[in-house]
Computed example of a mutant assay.
Amino acid sequence: MLTAITKNGERYCLLYPERKEKLMKIRGETSFYCPQCHSEVIVKIGNIKIPHFSHKSNTICASSEPESERHLQGKIDLYNWLRNQQLPVEMEKFLPKIKQRPDLYVQKNGKKYAIEFQCSSISIEEIEKRTKGYSTIDIVPIWLIGGEPYQKKYTQIDNVFKLSDFQWSLAQYNSTNGMHIYSYLPQSKELTIISHISPISIRKVFGQQISYPLSSLDFPLHLPKSNKNNFDWNFWFHEKKNMLQNKIIYAPNLKDSFLATAYYNRHSPILFPPLIGIPVNFMEICKTHAAIWQYFIWSDSFRHLNRGDETTFAMVVRKFEERVSNNDIQLRRFPLVNISFLKQMIYHYLKILSKFGLLEETLKGRFTMNKSMPFPNNIEEAARMEIEFMNTFYK
C-alpha cells in the first residue's frame, strides 16, 4: 500500500516519494501504522519496485496481501489522471463505517466514487461484499481489472476471447456497449474495454476490444459507442457441435439431466435443429450453453403441445426457474449489474421461435403453438437445416 498513518494519526503517502536516502532516514526515525488494522507497517525501499508500505509477516488484515508492481503503478497513474482533471481524490482512504479501503476515493458533481483497481483474482463473494458495502454509504463503486480484461485472445478468428470466472464477475451493462468489462494496463497507459460480450461457451466469448490512452478520457467513464461485430454463424455452429459432442463423451450419461431428458425424448444432441442453441439477447446471464437451456424450454413447455394449443410466457419462465432451482441450468452472478435480464432473454428466444413460425404471440405474454420443432434425422439433414436457417436469418 502507498498510504499509512503516524502515531499522531497523520496520513503519510508515498505517492511522490522522497529520494531513497531520505526515505531510509524517515524509515529509521518514524513509525507507521495501517489505517485499517492499526498494526505497524514497514517502508519497503528497493532499487526496482516502487517504494510502499507493507505489513509485517503474520499480520491479519484485509489489506495485508502483497501488492504487485502493476497494482502500485496503476494506482499512481489513476490518481494522477484524476488530479489532472482537478478532482478531489484520496489514495487508499479508509472508510470506517464499512471497514473498507478503496484504492482511490474521488468526488465529482456531488457524487462519491470508490475505484477498485483489481490486479489479482478474488472471489465473487468478495466483489459482492465490497460493492454492497460502498452502496450502503452512497458511494458508487468502479471496478477496473489490472492488465488485459481476458485470459486469452484467439488469433484464428477475429474478436474471440477467453474469460475467467473472475473476469466475468466484473462485467457491467449499459445500452451503449451491452455487457462489457473495463481494464487498465499501466505498461501502455491505456484503458481497454471489451464490449458487446456474447458467450460462445463457458469461457469463450465474442467481443469488441477497443483501447484508449488514459489521458484522453474523462471521469467518470463515458466511452463512445462501439459497433457490434458481424456474428460468425459458422463458428457458432462449429463450437456448439463441439460442446454437444463433448457432453455426450464426458458427461455421466443418465446422471446428467440434459442428456437424460434428450434420451428420454429419443433425441440425439448432435442432431438438434438450428433453432435449439441460437444466440439471443442477454444470454450472457447463463453459464449453461444456449443449446441446453433452449432444449429444456422446448421440452418442458412446448413438446407436449399440439397445433393450436396455448401456453403463457409466465409458465415458460416458471418452468425455466425450476430448472435453475434443480441446478439443471446455471446462471452467472454479476455483482455490478442490478437487473437479472432472465425474462428478457427467454422472451427474446420465444419471439425468434415466433418469427420462424413455430409460435404465435396472440396476446401479450400468450403463445399459441403453430407447428412442432422439426428435428433432423441424420448429419446431412442437420447441415442442410443450418444452411437454410442462416439464409432465412440473414433475410
Rank of each mutant, 00 (worst) to 15 (best):
M243W: 04
E29R: 15
K25A: 14
R83I: 15
N327H: 15
L271D: 08
S301G: 06
F313D: 02
T155K: 12
D300A: 11
M390Y: 08
I124K: 02
P186R: 03
G110K: 00
I278M: 10
L15K: 04
N47I: 07
H38E: 14
R83N: 07
H267S: 03
K132A: 15
S325M: 05
E310I: 15
K132H: 15
L144P: 03
L221C: 06
E380K: 14
R318P: 02
Y264H: 14
K44N: 13
Y394I: 03
Y394V: 04
S68T: 09
H238K: 15
K241P: 05
S198F: 05
I50Y: 14
H55I: 05
I329D: 05
N265L: 10
I194V: 12
S39N: 14
S215F: 04
L271V: 01
S201I: 10
K108Y: 02
Y184R: 04
I292R: 00
K240T: 05
C34Q: 09
Y347L: 12
L214I: 06
F341C: 03
H180L: 06
N281L: 13
T30W: 12
Q344P: 00
L15C: 13
E90Q: 09
I339V: 14
K25M: 13
P186Q: 08
N8D: 15
I285R: 01
S164V: 06
S198R: 04
G357Y: 10
D165E: 12
Y173T: 04
Y79R: 05
I60G: 09
S63P: 04
I45C: 01
L23P: 09
C119Q: 05
V316R: 01
E388T: 08
K56M: 12
R27C: 07
E284H: 10
K240P: 06
R101T: 02
P102L: 00
F334T: 00
S135V: 06
Q167I: 09
L87F: 06
R203P: 08
V160M: 04
Q100S: 11
S354C: 13
H267T: 11
V316C: 03
E125L: 11
S195Y: 04
L87Y: 08
Y184E: 01
E18N: 13
L363W: 03
T311Y: 10
Y33G: 05
I181E: 01
M243E: 05
Y33H: 11
D165K: 10
K152H: 12
M385L: 15
I127P: 04
Y250G: 10
R101H: 01
Q100W: 07
G365N: 01
P17Y: 07
S183V: 08
N326W: 13
K225F: 03
D77R: 01
Q187H: 09
Y394D: 06
S299A: 15
C37S: 10
P224T: 02
